[in-house]
Design a protein around this nucleic acid. Structure first.
Lengths: 210, 210
DNA sequence: AATATAAACGGACAATTGTCCGTTAGTCAA
DNA sequence: TTGACTAACGGACAATTGTCCGTTTATATT
């Protein structure tokens, strides 16, 4: 197999045959339409196949499961989010300040894509539980946060004994979609409150100035 | 038969009829046996019913879903954990120190009950996503952490502007079973490392001494 | 254009979860 | 003890996910 460039999404190994591409498009269109109409949770995969006019085999060949389909639907949003994040995060200024900005941006991403993110999460059950974390999207976010924390260490803004890797997971998981929905809808917390609390956690990472 | 009702499963309204109690016992025994034999994930609900010698209606009347059954199975462990936690947490000493102890204990609980906790988590999909957080077990932990944080505020160990509620969710979610399994098995992190990182987060909550 | 071949297609099928409803049997009061 | 009331029972049934496999078709080659 020819080595493909390290693309953001690992779909399309060689080149898609024309009928395959057509099927992919039909399925994604149908899914968008049905999700829009009745909500993500209320639409079954078979229904999507029927609406798209493709068989189950085709449907599942293109998208391993509903979560993968939702990920594909999220595609552009993810690209935008990652692009903006990488740009802002690569800019000048204090690393911890940029980290705080990033946490706010991630909350906004949650806010805008809650339904699809929830479906992605739902599909990560049983044997696929690990996929929640081991995927290009999460790993990208993780690298980004680690990078910021390491930079904060180097500039002596953060204590040197802090564990950047672990902390990155902690910060990202504090904004996982399940907890976020629970805090927003069940506890009635405002977005700014959630983000604010997390920023105060980051504030605690700072070296105490003498 | 151990006292039921204070765990994750719903409280028993009046009193269980004798045949109902027998069914409950048979189902739990069968589940324990099969889970032990082949692992939680590899056993279906129907199989448990068959092994227990009860019909599907009975099975689902007693346990709403596989997660509820696993919660019941976790019952005693949960009791022990909660009891020990409440005792230690109610003791003397610095609140933040007790919080740190609690985080270690929670990690140990994860370690000991990973498979069942994973199944409980898996069953909290779709419409039941909220149940991951809105259940007596989680709420108990949450109250306990909030209590500690509030105490730390009162004794001026923690900055007064910290949001105890949000922070409690953050700390607890940092030890959710999915992330924990990912960090332990996928990233190969040691338990002490995970707990240590979280304790350093708590350390950051402290008021900076002048 | 004809042909070979591998990818893609479609829909039947298997597995699992969860519900429904007619039947059975504990429990309590007379 | 008897009888009635109602919780509990059991298994068929519906819905959904995901797989399998025989058939079709796009594409590269001659």
């Amino acid at each position: 197999m020819p080595e493909r460039g390290a693309g953001v999404s690992e779909a399309i190994p060689k080149r898609e045959r024309s009928d395959a591409a057509r099927s992919r498009g039909k399925v994604m269109d149908a899914a968008r339409r049905l999700f829009d109409e009745r909500g993500v949770d209320a639409v079954s995969m078979h229904e999507i196949g029927r609406e798209a006019g493709v068989g189950q085999g085709t449907l599942y060949r293109r998208f391993e499961h509903k979560g993968a389909l939702c990920s594909a639907l999220l595609g552009e949003k993810i690209e935008d989010f990652q692009e903006e994040s990488r740009r802002r995060v690569g800019s000048r200024g204090a690393a911890l300040g940029r980290l705080k900005w990033f946490l706010g941006r991630l909350a906004k991403f949650n806010e805008e894509n809650g339904a699809l993110l929830g479906a992605v999460r739902d599909s990560a059950v049983g044997g696929r539980r690990i996929e929640m974390h081991r995927n290009p999207f999460y790993e990208g976010l993780r690298e980004l946060v680690i990078e910021l924390l390491e930079e904060a260490k180097e500039t002596r803004d953060m204590r040197a004994d802090m564990d950047s890797e672990c902390l990155a997971d902690t910060l990202l998981d504090a904004l996982n979609i399940d907890l976020y929905v629970y805090q927003r809808q069940e506890l009635g917390m405002e977005r700014e409150r959630i983000v604010g609390a997390l920023r105060s956690v980051v504030e605690g990472f700072r070296t105490t100035e003498p």
